[in-house]
Amino acid sequence: MKEQKLHDYLQERLYKPIRRKRFLRSIAVAGGSFMLGLTACRKEGQPGSGVIDVGSADIGILNFAYALEQIEAAFYTKANASYYHNAPLSEKQVLFDIMHHEVAHRDFLKAALGSNAIGDLQFDFSSVDFTTRDSVLKTSKALEDTGVSAYNGVGPLLQSADYLKIAAKIVSVEARHAAAIRDILNPRSADFAGDDVVDPATGLDFSRTPNSTTGGQSIVAIANSYLLTKISASKLP
């Protein structure tokens, strides 16, 4: 196999997963407000009033990650403030732990970015019913799977080896979360690393760059579906 062919093969495998439709459907179901996402999409590339652009290059990527971590931290803070009906202790403990991890990621990225950090975002979780298990856990699953594919997608874009190390240290924790939530939703099944997120032919998770709309909504659009303060990543792929 020539290198260019390998490149094409891997690109196909990494960025155009066969079962993407199922993956995106699960995000759409949990993510709710699709229209918000579309609105945000139109704004990409032309950051205007009220839209926060994450910036370019490594700082842009870190800010993009910081935005995702802000969303996750806010979501779990809300989910832990008052648990869904009849939440068993084992599920509360998982949500409690994950909240702390996401808060640690958020606070760390803010500190690392220093004066380059985007501001505090405002959230819109109106698509989530925090009183029902199904809504909370499916949103959690979507956020974690999105986080995994987002960190995997930006890893190769990072110029700094130190930042790449950080992305790798965080992404595996997001993957641990995703598996745990998937296990809670569908215990003792193959879902923790299901064929909808891990290509069964290659055993690879998915990579998604911030604005890639291959197969559906971009990660930026998914993020915006949970945000009042919209973000854009106009200088990132």
Binding site: L14, V148, Y151, N152, G155, P156, A168, V171, S172, V173, E174, A175, R176, A178, A179, F192, A193, V198, G203, L204, D205, F206, S207
Partner: peptide, 10 residues
Amino acid sequence: LNIHSVEARH
């Protein structure tokens, strides 16, 4: 990276 996160799921 995409193998790495699958190992983490496992």
